[in-house]
Computed example of a mutant assay.
Amino acid sequence: MRRTTDLVEAWVALVALLLILVVTPVAGAVIGSFAQGALQKSVRDQQRTRHLVPATVVKKLNRSPLEPDPESSTTRDARSRVLADWTAPDGTAQHGTLLADLKSPHRGDHFTVWTDDHGRIVARPLDSVTATTHAVLAGFGAAMMTVGLIEGGRRLIVWRMVRRRYARWDQAWDKAGPDWGRTGTGS
């Protein structure tokens, strides 16, 4: 015995499966492609505007009173807080407190820092491989979100169908009355 709602539920499941198989890869590829384009543009912009310049230690400073993570020995041991001089790409002399990749810096030691065009310290520019990795992750995330939305939609439809089915059963029981199945009630 097959109810109409069972057939509809099977069709909803089939449509959801087909949507997952077709729409998910397309959504992942489209979002990944957009992310790749935007991130590669950012890579080019950062590589054009960020420069690796030499800096010279003026003096070693005490450790920062507020360590970002006092338990992290690798960060503490690998970098030293120093007062340094460097020349910006635009030719201006700069002076300030930096973190140097020197274990025991001394006056006159040299190290490199990333700066913008005006000599302000900036983070290392994004590289192409990292940008591609982020784009792939964005595409994968979009694909998984698409699967979640389709499956959530399927479950919502089935839930509403089951609620309607139960409501119809309740109406049928109410119509049959409280005496259904008892002897002498005319049923």
Rank of each mutant, 00 (worst) to 15 (best):
H110T: 07
T115K: 09
D117H: 09
G108D: 03
W114V: 01
D127T: 01
L98D: 02
W114N: 05
D117M: 11
G119M: 05
V122C: 03
T97G: 12
P125T: 10
H110L: 11
K103A: 13
P105S: 00
S104N: 15
G108F: 08
G119D: 09
G119Q: 08
D127Y: 08
W114L: 07
K103L: 13
D101W: 15
V113T: 06
F111W: 09
W114T: 02
D117R: 13
V113C: 03
A123E: 15
G119K: 05
W114D: 04
L99F: 10
D109W: 12
P105Q: 07
T97M: 08
L102T: 01
K103R: 12
D109N: 15
V113L: 06
G108N: 06
K103I: 09
D109L: 14
W114R: 07
D116H: 10
L98T: 03
T112S: 15
W114Y: 13
L126H: 09
V122S: 02
D127A: 07
D101P: 15
V122L: 05
W114I: 06
D117F: 06
D127C: 06
V122H: 05
V113A: 00
R124W: 13
A123K: 13
D101A: 05
H106Q: 12
A100H: 00
S104Q: 14
R124H: 12
F111H: 10
H118R: 13
D116N: 03
W114P: 01
V113N: 01
H118L: 09
L98C: 04
H118F: 10
H106A: 15
D109K: 08
H106P: 00
H106N: 09
R124A: 10
A123G: 14
D127H: 13
P105L: 08
L102V: 03
V122F: 14
D116I: 00
S104G: 14
D101Y: 13
D101E: 05
D116S: 01
L102W: 11
L102Y: 06
L98R: 05
D116F: 11
H118Q: 14
L98K: 03
L126C: 02
T97K: 14
G108W: 12
F111C: 01
V113I: 05
D116T: 02
H118S: 10
F111A: 00
L99M: 06
D109A: 05
H106W: 09
I121M: 11
R124G: 07
G119A: 06
R107K: 10
H118N: 10
L126D: 02
D101T: 13
P105M: 05
F111L: 03
D116E: 00
I121V: 14
T115Y: 02
T112V: 11
H110K: 14
A100L: 02
I121Q: 11
S104P: 01
L126K: 03
H106T: 08
L98G: 01
G119T: 01
S104T: 15
T97I: 14
T115G: 02
T112M: 07
P105C: 08
A100I: 00
H106D: 11
L99H: 08
H106V: 07
